[in-house]
Amino acid sequence: MRVHVVEDDAGVSDSLALILRNIGHTVISYPDAESLFRAPLPQARDAVIVDLSLPGISGAHLVRWLLNLAAPPRVVVITGQSQGFIDHQLRGLVPTGLVRKPLDVDAITRVLPAEDAAGSPA
């Protein structure tokens, strides 16, 4: 699967790309929502991982925009914020998955199944 990662934290973005490739996905990384808008539209068979706290256009805005596409991709929200903040940001939005940081590979494969030969993570 092609996975778009929108995450401004360089360490999180880099390690997430590494593990996603490791489990068989193709990864395109963006530091903010604006750069994703400039790139070709994500396809319905793609997945987009969105960090809820983004600089500039907010993660919630991006999620709303993605879910309103004619052929929306799978949208997975990642965040290290409190439940209150998440509820407030995502009012009325239902993403494919929500994973709270700290992330690990099991939490990721639950929402985006591994596509490598080994299947499930070690």
Partner: peptide, 21 residues
């Protein structure tokens, strides 16, 4: 807590990537 989550997430994913490989 959020700020600490970032490096912990990255750390966990790096280690798991090595473990899996």
């Amino acid at each position: 807590a959020h700020e600490l989550n970032q490096p912990l997430t990255a750390l966990m994913l790096y280690l798991q990537a090595i473990r899996r490989a």
